[in-house]
Write a protein that binds this DNA or RNA. Structure first.
Lengths: 138, 138
DNA sequence: GTTCCTGCAAAAGCTTTGCAGAAGA
DNA sequence: TCTTCTGCAAAGCTTTTGCAGGAAC
């Protein structure tokens, strides 16, 4: 377990390293599945005796404000979270619902930001059919 | 008023052209402000005697399914809608909250979609400071 | 005349808030 | 020891659902 490292990272970003925050952060770094708050809640409930939804939301908001995680507006129904804070794109398959990461050239990414605007963070998001569902659907 | 034209467009897309749907569609084509459902509701309530929130949601969902409008996942709090269905980007200023449109080269846009994935729709979204707020903030 | 839509009310879902007890510095 | 966080419960918000009356074809 690299929890000691995670605690150090949290401290370095001005976030008090509580067990719950470390657990949430660790989960997001380990699972690149862009989980919802509820998904994280259910997953951590299995590992830890008590873990309330409020704490999940508190931790996620705290981590997001510290730029340790990112909020991804992929689903209109619920917030999704991503432990990867680098510039990258997301692809959601409308057939299987899976969300895929894909890398984007940082230079190209930044070049898309309009002149005069100071882009702090970028999101690229495609919807369509993933390779598996294309062949399945014909 | 080009409402006759709007009605024809709705019909052409298999959407029964009711007054409410025309009003919602017209509002989105006229106001490029990416309004939320609630914003549209309040705006149309001033023009029309009765207009329920349910109808707003029904109309928006119907129009979105017909590809006449787009749902923009800009705000985590609420859905935003856009009458411009062409490929373009959005910039949200974290200072003033304004959402700006900017054009994106369609060829560049499509080239960003990863190989093997069939992207039906793309969204490019930046967060940061708009020109006005940059100078205001220093 | 039949089908589909509107609109009111209520419910459903995710997320936030208030406050007492506990963990962290 | 003092500040901050956790966690339970309840509220807040946007959005959806059910059903009767009405509009569109």
């Amino acid at each position: 377990m690299a929890n000691q490292n995670l605690a150090a990272v949290l401290s370095a970003h001005g976030v008090r390293p509580t067990q719950q925050r470390i657990a949430v952060f660790d989960y997001l770094l380990t699972h690149h599945t862009h989980p919802s708050a509820d998904t994280i809640y259910h997953a951590l409930c299995r590992e830890y005796p008590v873990f309330s939804r409020t704490t999940i939301y508190n931790s996620l908001n705290t981590l997001a404000q510290a730029n340790l995680i990112r909020v991804v507006n992929i689903s209109p129904d619920e917030q999704r979270f991503d432990g990867d804070t680098s510039d990258h794109g997301h692809f959601r398959c409308v057939s299987c619902g899976e969300i895929y990461d894909f890398s984007v050239d940082p230079a190209v990414f930044r070049s898309l930001c309009p002149d005069g605007f100071q882009g702090e963070q970028g999101d690229l998001f495609f919807t369509g059919y993933c390779p598996g569902c294309q062949s399945a659907a014909g």
